[in-house]
Each structure stands twice: as structure tokens, then as C-alpha cells.
Design a binder for these strands. Structure first.
Lengths: 157, 157
DNA sequence: CTTTGCATTTACAGATCTCTGAACGCTGAG
DNA sequence: CTCAGCGTTCAGAGATCTGTAAATGCAAAG
């Protein structure tokens, strides 16, 4: 029974990992992330990840190396143990979306660069103008949206 | 002079393509997209894309095949010419962001699936609960944000 | 109906990426 | 100071992806 639910959990994790992989994320990286996300435990060691996902310790090391800088997971100091413990980070989703803001900035800047070279006129000018306007708008509004969610979520408990 | 600006334009296009490629988009697909985006012309033919990007016609065909379904570019009926003309689509950015809504739904559903299997309690329960709440919120608010931009942009002209 | 010009498809080759297994290095225990 | 137990790094094998060139398909023009 608990075993059955565990199976469903593992399947859900793998399914999501596959979707994320389609969307550009490294396959193993995605699997490590979803394994931590769908784990019943608070944290998992590298060894546990190896066994659960049937991958080498080198692969885990590499995945973790990609995940930590994005803020999705974190290394947890493990007193009394030499093994590294990893945990899916609190508010990771909000962090992830905030990181996407960087991409919005890139897009906006790229449009601005084009306008600088081509001017505001003509087909190209208006195309780039719309692009710059759109991303400037999103760049301003998205963080506000995330903050709103935080407030709403914190107050609702 | 115009040549100089054209160079800057082409460089800006390639630079953005590279960034998009880092973010998971196919390299050639990204190059085709940015070539159309930064083109002075309203539309470009497949042949022009081949020459500009120094790639085969097969590669163009493949890239276009990926780009059209996402709504980023469109095929333009070319009366009096057998060549296909392609154009960067109006409001493509808003479309692109709307498409991301599908991903938000996937995330929300995945969280819900996990909760169904694991319940709301425990570490896992609250982790998934936060995830579901966050994505449900974004799924509702993002389309509204895009609409707001449209209104603002249309009225400002 | 044939020809012509283009787009598309496909098989293949080349490049790239990613994992594994082993060597290496670090840190804490004894 | 040495050993044990990890994590990390690295070279190489394997798989995957992607672009090219050629064959194929299709549609308009003559």
C-alpha cells in the first residue's frame, strides 16, 4: 500500500523530469531535481540519489553542480556525517521564476541594441519596439506578481 | 555606414540566438528566428535565410517546422512567387509567453498528482502544496498580465 | 503534359553531449 | 600520522542530436 503510493510518486517524479528534459533541462539534472522534490524525506544523500535513480556518483555530482546555482536545491550541513545532504529549497519555485527575469532583461536589452543600430522607423523599428516594450513591461510586473503570491501564501498559512 | 549598422544588427541577432540556444532552444532554430526578427525586410525567403546564415535548405526547412507551431513565425502567401516567404509574427512575444502557461499547468498538475499519492501532510505534503499553490496562482495571473500589456500597448499606439 | 524551381524528406556523417568507471583529493576519525 | 569514507574530476565510450547532400515530391508555368 505504502509501496504502491511510493511507486506512483516515483512515476510522477520521472514523468515531470521527462517533461522538463523536453523543455531543455539536462535529463539527469531534471531527474535529480524531481527525486528531491517528490521525496518523502526532508533531505537525501548523494548515495541515496545514486541508488534511487540508478546513476553513478559522478552523474549526481554533476547534476547537483548545476542545480545549486539556480537555487532549486541546497546542500545541507550534516553534523555527524561526512555525507552531503541535499534538499529541495524552500520557495524554490518563486526563485526559479525570478531567475527567469534575467532572461527578460536579456530580451529587452537585445531589442534595445537593435533599435540603436536600426532606429525606430520601418518594419524593423516597430518590430523591435514592440519587443522592447513587452519585455520591459514583464520585467517590471513579474517580480511584483511573485511578491503578491508570497504575501498571499504567507498570510494564508 | 548602412553596412556598418547591418553588421551590428547581424551580430545582435547571432548573440541573441546563442543565448536562446543556451536556454535550450535548437541552435539553428534560434538563428532562423533571430534572423527574421532582426531583418530590415518584412519577410524573408528560405533562400535568403540559407545565404544569410550559411546553412542548407534542409536545415531551414527543419527550423521553420519547429518555429511555426510555436507561433513565433508564419508563412506568408507569396502571390506570383513559388518561394515561401516567412515573417516574424505580430505579437509573437505575447504568444510565446502565453504558451509558457502550458508549462505552468503541467507543473501544477504534477504537484496535484503527488499530493493525491502522498497526502497533504508531512514534509512532502507541504512541499507539493506550495508548488501547486504557486503554479495555480501564476496560471491565473499571467494571462491577465499579458492582456494588460496588450491594452496598454494598443491604446498608446 | 512536360518542364522547371522550389520545398521537403531521408540516409548518413560528423559533432556534441553525457554518463560511467577509475583515479584523485579532501576531511575527519582513530 | 595513517586510514577510511566520501565527493569530485577526468578520460573515454556510447548515445544522441543535427546538419548536409541527394533523392523525392509538389505545384505553377509554358
Amino acid at each position: 500500500m505504502a509501496d504502491d503510493k511510493d511507486t506512483r510518486l516515483r512515476e510522477a517524479a520521472e514523468k515531470l523530469a521527462l517533461t522538463l528534459a523536453q523543455g531543455g533541462m539536462q535529463k539527469t539534472t531534471a531527474r535529480v531535481m524531481t527525486a528531491l522534490l517528490f521525496s518523502r524525506q526532508e533531505t537525501m544523500t548523494a548515495g541515496e540519489l545514486c541508488e534511487e535513480l540508478q546513476i553513478s556518483s559522478g552523474a549526481v555530482s554533476g547534476a547537483v553542480k548545476q542545480l545549486i546555482p539556480t537555487g532549486m536545491i541546497e546542500r545541507v550541513p550534516a553534523p555527524g556525517s561526512r555525507r552531503d545532504h541535499y534538499r529541495f529549497r524552500e520557495h524554490a519555485w518563486a526563485t526559479l521564476m525570478s531567475n527567469q527575469n534575467a532572461m527578460l532583461t536579456v530580451m529587452k536589452d537585445s531589442a534595445a541594441e537593435g533599435i540603436e543600430a536600426a532606429g525606430q522607423d520601418g518594419v524593423l523599428g516597430s518590430r523591435l519596439h514592440e519587443m522592447r516594450d513587452f519585455y520591459a513591461y514583464m520585467e517590471r510586473q513579474l517580480p511584483a506578481l511573485i511578491d503578491q503570491w508570497r504575501e498571499q501564501y504567507d498570510s494564508a498559512g
